[in-house]
């Protein structure tokens, strides 16, 4: 067994350890994004289970529990539509923690993806505390500047949860270094300049941004998100990224909007299985 290059427990936090373990198995980690509360508050956890289990018992290693927000700056149409519906159907911040507990009990690592105001409104310390108590690994905060969030550092350090910040192709080397030093667990690289959503071809910018990130800070894994739609793309990205993050393509499986859950869940299991298989063969 080869040990991954990532070996600082302090830098890897909770979720980075999961990634390092996958890398030790010779593959990147598969991160599946799914919105809590969609299609409904009481059945979004079923969808998360489908993503973890796949169709052949092999699915996501990490579930990125998306918290719907009224004014998302980065969500593409697919996620935005699902999240608007989840809000109108009554999803609350506290539902995150129920979902995190469920994901953890399935053996996957729960993480949260949320716009900052949701955390601030809940209470910064309370959010980190309740996430840790629910078994959550940490939170991805797409609109929180890594150089201007002292309170979040305090809370995440106090409760031992990870802080995942974003880097982009447009980030300067200096900013990339700063952002990665601020992160614990891993860093989220957006591979294209744009909002979330499926793209038929992955961009070469992904490879470049990962290379730049490794140069900036080799101590934490680098995940690639935005644009992954299926197994082949996952295999392609998994060849160079430490985490392959899939979101809109999974939400897209929910074609019935909850009116035919068995059908949607079957599609979700199939796609998760495909992506897991793509990730599995990416470094073979």
């Amino acid at each position: 067994m080869t040990m991954s290059q990532f070996n600082s427990a302090e830098r890897l936090g909770r979720s980075g350890q999961v990634v390092a373990k996958c890398l030790d198995e010779g593959r990147p980690a598969f991160v599946g994004y799914y919105s809590v509360g969609y299609p409904h508050v009481d059945n979004s956890i079923e969808a998360m289970r489908a993503i973890v289990e796949g169709d052949e018992g092999r699915g996501a290693d990490i579930i990125e529990i998306g918290m719907p927000y009224s004014d998302p700056l980065m969500d593409g149409l697919v996620i935005q539509r699902a999240n608007t519906r989840a809000l109108s159907r009554g999803v609350r911040t506290k539902d995150i923690f129920t979902a995190a507990e469920a994901v953890a009990s399935l053996g996957a690592m729960p993480m949260v993806m949320t716009y900052w105001n949701v955390i601030e409104a809940y209470g910064v310390d309370a959010f980190a505390r309740d996430l840790a108590a629910a078994g959550g690994g940490g939170a991805i905060t797409p609109d929180l500047p890594a150089d201007d969030c002292a309170e979040w550092f305090e809370a995440t350090d106090a409760h031992g949860t990870d802080r995942i910040f974003l880097i982009a192709p447009s980030s300067t080397d200096e900013r990339m270094k700063m952002t990665m030093a601020a992160s614990r667990g891993w860093v989220y690289a957006t591979s294209v300049m744009g909002v979330t959503g499926v793209r038929s071809q992955t961009s070469d910018a992904g490879r470049v941004v990962v290379e730049r990130a490794r140069e900036a800070d080799p101590s934490i894994p680098v995940g690639i998100g935005l644009g992954v739609s299926g197994g082949d793309q996952a295999a392609e990205i998994g060849a160079y990224a430490d985490l392959v993050i899939v979101g809109s393509a999974l939400i897209n499986c929910m074609t019935s909007d909850g009116t035919d859950m068995p059908y949607d869940l079957a599609a979700l299991r199939k796609l998760s299985g495909e992506i897991a298989a793509g990730v599995e063969r990416s470094r073979k």
């Binding site: 910040f165 192709p169 900013r175």
Partner: peptide, 19 residues
């Protein structure tokens, strides 16, 4: 950093920071 007391700042996705 764009603060007016505790208000202001730059809470945007990283892709916009450079701009």
């Amino acid at each position: 950093k764009g603060h007016f007391g505790r208000f202001g700042g730059r809470f945007v996705p990283e892709a916009l920071q450079a701009a």
